[in-house]
Design a protein around this nucleic acid. Structure first.
Length: 553
RNA sequence: GCGUCAAUAGCUCAGCAGGAUAGAGCAUCCCCCUCCUAAGGGGAAGGUCGGGGGUUCGAAUCCCUUUUGACGCGCCA
């Protein structure tokens, strides 16, 4: 866990004090909790270490605390005063200048401020979205895209080695239906008889693609052999649909490192050897003409079919091969982001990787609970414009990328979400995304005017002793911790909370502390540096959840 | 029936490796622009943390139980 200099020095100081009091011979500093009390009279920082030690020492926590504060090195840890409170909390008030050193760090690190090596370069593969290339991405995919991309950005900032991956289901039945649907629309485009399959794709997007294919290849597939025609439309349909997905994700500021094709599993002969490996391990059996995987051996509810009695694979089979392939590629951990309707999938896939010799902990399946679109208190199922399911495109057009991404990131992914369309669309103070962006715009405005008045940033900050300034500094000090925390639990909403708090502290500072003051030039210079440090922190934080930081609004 | 997730202010949600008086935004009610963007700030009001047990010095947080809701429980993907 990354930690800031102030807290680290406090932890070290308490560790030394514990040792010199004879309480312990050694102690893991990570186990010492240093927190910022909610109540200001409880100090700048506090620790509950004395209460934690009661179990070990079997002594009254206040007595332990008393001994600790006697031997703690206050000078070294920059403590101004230290006191015992309540049942045994140790509250510390820091020397004013202890807080300001963070400003220099931020100004030096710029867009890298907040990064740490907390993740120790551990290799993670994060798979998200992975929607079938058969149509537009809808509301649920938008949540997956926003949450997944934010998780990756945050993990990267926290020092994990992250590969973002999209699994393309381009081999199954749904692609066959896509091909049939396209072929039908292609014939339609020539004014010929056509037959749309019952479970095919009936959207206008298929018509558009068919028209484009007509322009590209002319009539050559009107009378071609059926196999050849289907193969052609499979390939072309996947290509077009995938390109549309890539384009919209790019617009949504979501990127992937690897686009992994299911078909490639067959082309590179990955599926059969996976089944053979399960067989060789004794984890399969035949029954009723099908091949089963004994997933119950690893805690699954029931065994799962790998090869159906008609000889074809279930969805699970190539997916097991895919997960094995990811692990074989050397990732220590896999993360899958799945919709709540797939949560039954967790146990069987964990069972599979165990049967294949990996540890079930290496697969983390994060469930994204369902999203409901609400407008004026009513559930909205369909897009008003198209009459079809709400797509990412609808969200981007109606709400904008910033607000959409903020709304998805601001809420814990694993709880059901009612997306308030009315609120998200409103371009007013009711919309929380503007609160943070407005703070950034205000800072830019100050910086711009300082420049016009030839006020430059100071490099020493002894005048920053106002409560509002100290609060801001404390919060900036927490940024690295917050990122590391958020990465560890893969919770982008923690960053959103951090952003709200930072914006709030700034707005409050803004009202109390006038920055550009020609009559107090030195204070202006010092505050200006604080504003710039705050601005960099806010911009970096917004970037972690894919939200822009406008210079004016 | 079994499983997963949820239930906290009027609304939308934080807080949940136990810690001090449960927080934020919005909505409501007061106050603040001769001054860096009022998309802002300050204040008020608003809660038996779904109910009931238990563990603990201490529980919104952990355990059990119960109610309600969403989603699963295919040789679909």
């Amino acid at each position: 866990m990354a930690t800031n200099k102030i807290e680290l020095s406090l932890k070290e100081a308490f560790k030394e004090a514990m040792i010199s009091c004879g309480f312990v011979e050694d102690y893991d500093v990570e186990k010492i909790t240093i927190e910022i009390p909610k109540e200001k009279t409880h100090g700048d920082y506090a620790t509950n270490i004395a209460m934690q030690l009661t179990k070990l020492l079997r002594k009254n926590p206040r007595i332990i605390a008393e001994e600790l504060i006697q031997s703690v090195n206050k000078e070294k840890a920059n403590i101004e005063t230290i006191e015992i409170a309540g049942p045994g909390f140790i509250n510390m008030f820091m020397k004013k200048d202890a807080m300001t050193s963070i400003i220099k760090e931020v100004l030096e690190e710029q867009e890298n401020f907040g990064q740490s090596d907390a993740g120790k370069g551990v290799k993670y593969n994060v798979e998200f979205v992975s929607a079938n290339p058969t149509g537009d991405l809808h509301l649920g995919h938008a949540k997956g895209a926003a949450v997944g991309d934010s998780i990756c950005r945050i993990m990267e900032a926290a020092g994990y080695d992250v590969t973002r991956e999209y699994y393309i289901n381009d081999a199954g039945n749904q692609i066959y239906n896509l091909a049939l649907s396209l072929n039908a629309r292609y014939r339609e485009a020539f004014g010929l008889d056509f037959e749309l399959p019952e479970d095919g794709y009936h959207g206008n997007d298929i018509k558009d693609i068919a028209k484009r294919i007509k322009e590209e290849v002319g009539d050559q597939y009107l009378n071609a052999p059926v196999d050849e025609t289907i193969a052609f439309f499979r390939k072309e349909g996947t290509k077009y649909e995938l390109q549309k997905i890539k384009d919209i994700l790019k617009e949504f500021r979501v990127s992937f490192d690897v686009w992994f094709s299911e078909t490639s599993l067959y082309e590179n002969n990955k599926v059969v050897p996976t089944i053979e490996k399960l067989k060789a391990g004794g984890y399969t059996y035949e029954s009723e003409g099908a091949l089963w995987f004994k997933s119950t051996l690893f805690g699954d509810d029931k065994d799962r079919v790998l090869i159906k009695s008609d000889g074809s694979y279930t969805y699970l089979t190539p997916d097991i091969a895919y997960h094995l392939n990811k692990l074989d590629r050397g990732y220590e951990y896999l993360v899958d982001l799945l919709g709540a309707d797939h949560h039954g999938y967790i146990n069987r896939m964990k069972a599979a990787i165990q049967a294949l010799g990996y540890n079930s902990d290496q697969l983390n399946i994060d469930i994204l609970q369902m999203v409901r679109m609400m407008e004026n208190g009513e559930v909205v199922k369909m897009s008003k414009r198209t009459g079809n399911a709400i797509t990412i495109k609808d969200l981007i057009d109606d709400i904008g990328v910033d607000a959409t991404r903020y709304f998805f990131a601001a809420k814990a992914a694993n709880t059901p979400y009612d997306f308030d369309l009315t609120l998200a669309k409103s371009k007013s103070n009711e919309n929380p995304v503007y609160y943070a962006q407005y703070a950034h715009a205000r800072m830019c405005s100050i910086l711009k005017q300082a420049k016009e008045n030839d006020i430059t940033m100071a490099d020493h900050f002894e005048l920053l002793v106002n409560d509002k300034e100290i609060d801001l500094l404390k919060h900036i000090n927490e940024f690295r911790n917050e990122i590391a925390d958020s990465a560890k639990s893969r919770s982008p909403h923690k960053i959103a909370n951090y952003i709200q708090r930072l914006a709030q502290l700034f707005h409050s500072f803004y009202n109390d502390c006038y920055v550009i003051d020609k009559n107090n030039f030195e204070l202006s210079r010092q505050r200006l540096a604080l504003v710039e440090a705050t601005r960099i922190t806010l911009k970096n934080a917004l970037n972690l959840i894919g939200v822009s930081a406008p210079e004016e609004m």
